[in-house]
Design a protein around this nucleic acid. Structure first.
Length: 321
DNA sequence: AGCCAGGCTAAGA
DNA sequence: TCTTAGCATGGC
């Protein structure tokens, strides 16, 4: 079976702060958990092999049908976006599970990415079910890189090109279900290092568990309506609602405005003017970056995060004045 | 040691 | 409606 796909860079995709459950085992070699399955993703010489879960789950999770070249073509043609697009070549937005994404980002507020990963790991070990290994495998062999279209061969695990992958024997855990979190105590969550976010996560889980919040209704809503709905959850403001809508619901018009993106926009598009309000930045972003604003955001975010000497808080205080 | 982190909430102007 | 302290915890 063959499917059309565009470029895919595992490092940029899995280490750009959209997912927190992937561990890098080596160069271009990652292990993670998707739903109830252990997954392994490997990239060598441009060839990508995805294993675990089922073929359908892998294709959906990695959004293999998305046309990355078209996304990048839609970006505004300015020097900043050209640089970001060149640096982030192959970065693909994932399609993750809504509750896991929402909960993870409730844990994310005012935390560094390293710490978010630790918190999520604690939650999974503490409250998540042990997961199974499954045997689906997708092997992606590019005809030409980068950015040319290539075909994607889906094979069974036995016929996968790079030899068998032995999963470590250590037990993995799924992300805890809504009810598992809802049944927990605040103290238990604080034990997972959530700090003041513990009460938010607990209350959010209980709202969803009791059906006072229906996540399955979100996909049928207009973007602004969906934001309005999600922000009814405790600990969920506009930024976290945008993250969930972008990384789980596939709403590519969502533009999460975090401190890094805010600094970057000020610096790159407003000459560092400190009195441009957040609201104005949000308006600018939505009108300027086009239909794939969410993609543009992720590219800019990853680009500036990997150039902290230019875009970090301290240098901004000096350079951006 | 001190500043900052993929923010949100509630209180006060 | 806009601004700001407070909130836990830990990396650098």
């Amino acid at each position: 079976m063959e499917i059309a796909a565009d470029d895919l860079h595992l490092g940029h995709t899995l280490e750009s702060g959209q997912a927190f459950r992937w561990a890098r085992l080596g160069e271009g070699d990652y292990e993670g958990v998707i739903g109830g399955s252990v997954a392994r993703a490997t990239q060598r010489n441009g060839m990508v092999v995805l294993r675990g879960a089922s073929e359908a789950v892998l294709r959906r999770y990695f959004q293999l049908d998305a046309d990355l070249a078209a996304v990048v073509r839609s970006f505004p043609d300015d020097p900043n976006m050209r640089q970001a697009a060149a640096f982030c070549r192959g970065l693909r937005l994932l399609r993750q599970e809504p509750w896991e994404t929402l909960a993870s980002f409730i844990c994310s507020s005012s935390k560094q990415i390293v710490q978010i990963r630790q918190i999520v790991a604690h939650l999974c070990r503490e409250l998540g079910e042990p997961v199974q290994k499954e045997s689906a495998c997708i092997s992606i062999t590019p005809k030409r890189l980068p950015f040319e279209r290539y075909t994607c061969n889906v094979q069974t695990a036995e016929h996968a090109t790079p030899g068998p992958v032995a999963f470590e024997s250590e037990v993995r855990h799924a992300f805890p279900s809504v009810s598992a979190v809802a049944r927990a105590t605040e103290a238990r969550l604080r034990g997972c290092k959530l700090g003041f976010r513990a009460k938010y996560l607990l209350a959010a889980a209980r709202m969803i568990e009791s059906d006072r919040m229906r996540l399955d209704a979100i996909s049928g809503m207009e973007y602004l309506r969906a934001v309005e709905e999600l922000t009814k959850l405790p600990g969920v403001g506009p930024k976290i609602a945008d993250c969930a809508l972008l990384f789980a619901w596939g709403r590519q018009e969502a533009f999460p405005m975090d401190v890094w993106i805010e600094r970057a926009l000020r610096r790159l598009y407003f000459r560092g003017q400190p009195r441009v309000t957040r609201r104005e930045l949000v308006e600018f972003a939505r009108s300027y970056f086009g239909p794939y604003a969410g993609y543009a955001q992720q590219y800019l975010f990853h680009y500036v995060r990997r150039h902290p000497h230019v875009f970090g808080a301290r240098s901004f205080a000096v350079l951006g004045r």
